[in-house]
Design a protein around this nucleic acid. Structure first.
Lengths: 318, 318
DNA sequence: CTGAAAGCGCTTACAG
DNA sequence: CTGAAAGCGCTTACAG
């Protein structure tokens, strides 16, 4: 059994409250007894029970981060910055995974409502579990969304300025000679919606030929008929670009020069692309803002706001 | 303020213990009052306080995973399998990061000794903090090490059968025509030590020329004098191979054909390698065993054992 | 079927 | 300087 204050108080022949004070280094306890008690406690290998402390204090100093997995930069990057900066502020970041599983996601939200953490960061990818948020939101539990936000509610969110970002990104492709654009729609969430929207706006305004295509569906057979310039393949992730190329572009008889344009990371294989551009999000800044908003919420700030962070940079990998 | 059992008992005009039983669906409570109480609780948005429950039960149903970061497959792969399988068994896996920071690592170990979790998985990368483990080990706290183990103690560890693995891996290189081997020593931990040892054994036994070199130091200028065959660059990670090539091999006047051999992932750029081999560890199996051993420890198993898992496969990326 | 009581391990006014 | 008491929110024998 673990050593408790009671054990120490028995051994030291003092009240349990004196032990508690001595161990918290309360100066009201006489130096002599204080040292004696601390020595005994160390000798016995005493370690406080945080569950008991939390019960009294009503806080845990823990913050949870809910992620689907750890496979994309948007999942594993911000978390590392957050963990570091929160530690300095006295909080522990605990990362939990829901594996794109709605039941597990709801289970985590339930736990959050049961006082396991003082707040939570969420990268939501399951939109159909809206009801599970409600108890948390209603109770004012500090919640900060990262990258994406649930559609149904006005929540505090830190994300990339996606509409501006995609426009800059496409300009870069134009400078690299892109004459036609395939916007590959891979996921459906608030991020991709904004990016697609921005892309359509930019390309329309500039009279550039483009198509918006679903990554799972064959493009029209006539897609590249009569086209012989440079084609930009634009998607959220490098793997999406690569898969689209493999599945639908490579099989075509006449393959144009291709520019790959993806967010955060490049396609794993780059041989068949003329140029490879990557738009890199500023995860450090996103984490900074998120941590900041979280601490404010914990201190009672009730406002909900959305922060848009500019891209960190656009790099040409090839 | 959060709703408590007391609030509900006041409203329902029953004792708090009856409320407790009703909410845990105890059949001893009359169906009518049970339903009434549950309805009221739901209406008030009651959520139990897990800190209080844990205090009574003495368990948390939480398991922590201590990682340095999330940058290598050995860090982000096992954790995803673990999280999934532990959830099924009723445990939550909470991932914490120590950022190669000894102070933070010790801080996490301290927290573990304060009853925040029922056990912990650790991928240690900081060997110089041995003393911090002692209280945990002495108290019999369930600890399972993954991939590497601390040098100072006999701890339960699940890892790849590294000595066998490297031998298979080198055989593969031989079949691909490797005639000379540079074993790049990148980290110093139980894993790389075993791999280096296995490599030296294998290469000596087979009379194959090799050198064991530190990744931070220039190799002797004469390294490739008179050599014109295929050279294998062997390291724990793809980035180590790539960096070594850039720093020390590329600058040489005469560059032989090179085979890259690394664990878990390939060098990011592969143009200048003749072949690229990757030895893939079986992270799923490692996670399975680790979960299993953890549950046994929680049930009181005191034995310390080391489990060696064979490689999942060796793939030729190029 | 339900209540009163003790207890989980700790903290913190309040007395003295 | 130290002790006795109440309390954090819950569970669970023990009575009745």
């Amino acid at each position: 059994m673990a050593v408790t204050l009671k054990n120490i108080s028995d051994i030291c022949k003092v009240d349990i409250s004196t032990v508690s004070r001595a161990l918290r280094n309360d100066l009201r306890v006489k130096a002599g007894t204080r040292e004696f008690i601390r020595a005994k406690a160390a000798e016995l290998g005493y370690t406080p029970n945080l569950a008991a402390r939390n019960l009294v204090s009503g806080k845990t100093l823990n913050l949870w981060m809910l992620l689907s997995g750890l496979n994309s930069p948007v999942e594993y990057e911000p978390v590392q910055f957050l963990s570091k900066s929160l530690h300095v502020k006295g909080y522990e970041l605990l990362i939990t995974l829901y594996h794109a599983d709605a039941a597990k996601f709801n289970h985590l939200l339930t736990q959050l409502s049961q006082h396991v953490a003082d707040g939570a960061f969420i990268i939501p990818s399951i939109e159909y579990s809206a009801p599970a948020y409600l108890p948390l939101l209603k109770s004012g539990f500090p919640l900060v969304f990262i990258d994406r936000q649930p559609t149904f509610e006005n929540c505090t969110t830190v994300t990339t300025a996606n509409k501006t970002a995609i426009k800059e990104f496409l300009s870069e492709c134009v400078r690299a000679g892109a004459e036609k654009f395939i916007i590959i729609s891979d996921f459906d969430n608030s991020v991709t919606r904004l990016r697609n929207q921005g892309a359509v706006e930019f390309l329309s305004e500039n009279n550039l030929p483009f198509v918006l295509l679903d990554c799972r569906q064959s493009p029209p057979a006539s897609l590249l008929d009569g086209f012989s310039g440079r084609l930009a393949l634009v998607a959220s992730s490098g793997t999406s670009v690569q898969e689209y190329y493999h599945n639908f572009i490579a099989p075509m008889k006449k393959i144009p020069e291709i520019i790959s344009a993806s967010f955060d990371f490049a396609p794993p294989q780059q041989d068949y692309f003329e140029h490879v551009f990557v738009a890199v999000q500023n995860f450090e800044l996103i984490a900074d803002y998120a941590a900041d908003l979280m601490l404010k919420k914990i201190q009672g700030d009730k406002t909900a706001k959305t922060i848009d962070i500019p891209l960190k940079k656009i790099i040409r990998v090839k």
